[in-house]
Amino acid sequence: MQSPVPNIVATIGTRGSPLALAQAHEVRARLARAHAIDPERIAVRTIRTSGDIIQDRALLDVGGKGLFTKEIEEALLAGDIDLAVHSSKDVPTFLPDATWLSAFLPREDARDVFISHKATSLETLPAGAVVGTASLRRQAMVLRLRPDLKVNVIRGNVETRLRKLAAGEADATLLALAGLKRLKMEDKATRIFEIDEFLPAVGQGAIAIESRRNDDRINAFVTRITDPDTEVALTTERSFLALLDGSCRTPIGGHCRVSGETIHFRGLIISPDGKEWFETTREGARGDAAKLGTDAARELRERAGEKFFTLFGGA
């Protein structure tokens, strides 16, 4: 006898990459546990985004990181899905007025990793070696540490990038440790960078849930699984980002650590060639998260001057 179709209580929209699906299913599992329901009652719908389709150019050349969320947000606004699951670092600085980030899962390790079959670290790569990455931030930070290296664009999901590395398209690459952990591939990391030596992207390691502001049922549904510390950290980081740059054309790093009632933030802006950078830190009360992030961004904007952002394609 055929099993009855479960009564669907919510539909999740996500990209179709293995990592995106792993994140969507983690959200589904947490929601199911929190509400004591069968996970099958929460549907997962894959949506192909422009960022998945365009693989031969850097994101900054074709519209920025919003290409990974645009079609999913359109489905959310149209009511085709009830909530969207994103990697927080892929979420644009500014969302449509009708949506908001309604929940965050506990943050995974935010650090970057170095991967190579030819060297044990970025420092031991030979001069002229090629580092493949799609991230302008990673490019800039690699060149700051090793101006004698070359950086080429490598796009694609985690598995695709690792295949390209194995095929010799680059001598090394850099990825987020969080993604490798969620895919149970952390053994692929040759070396893990510490936060202080290689500042992560804003939101790195955090899974965000986007929903419609006026959807009280879904907002109450997802709030049950939100992690308060991650929400505070992302509030700080995204406030920092908002005042600096709404796109991915200026390399920006930012990371907030939450310790009880205190937050510790570090932010960085850097030129794409890694030759010029400005960084700052903040410490304060978690209730002042947005204020601290904005204040840090204001300091860097004043120190760098508007010429910095004009030269390097910023806001």
Rank of each mutant, 00 (worst) to 15 (best):
V5H: 11
A140V: 03
E40G: 12
R144L: 04
R41G: 02
R30G: 01
D196N: 14
G203N: 06
P6I: 08
L162E: 02
I154D: 00
A10Y: 10
G246K: 12
A176W: 04
I225C: 07
G314A: 09
G284P: 11
S17R: 06
L77W: 08
R15V: 04
E283G: 00
D187T: 12
F193A: 02
V91N: 01
K188V: 04
A32W: 11
I81F: 11
F312D: 01
L60C: 08
T14C: 14
R303S: 14
D295K: 11
A119D: 10
A103Y: 09
D97Y: 10
R249L: 05
A58F: 10
A103C: 08
P18G: 01
V232C: 11
P272A: 03
L19Y: 12
A129E: 06
F265W: 10
G16T: 05
A36N: 15
P39I: 04
R138E: 11
A24R: 03
H264W: 09
A233C: 07
A285Y: 12
R48D: 01
V44G: 07
A296V: 05
T236L: 15
T69R: 00
T250I: 15
F312A: 00
A78G: 09
G203Q: 10
A110F: 01
A233K: 06
L183E: 03
E237R: 01
Q23Y: 06
G13C: 02
S121K: 10
L143E: 05
L21W: 07
S50F: 12
G51Q: 07
I8S: 02
G260P: 12
A206E: 08
R182L: 15
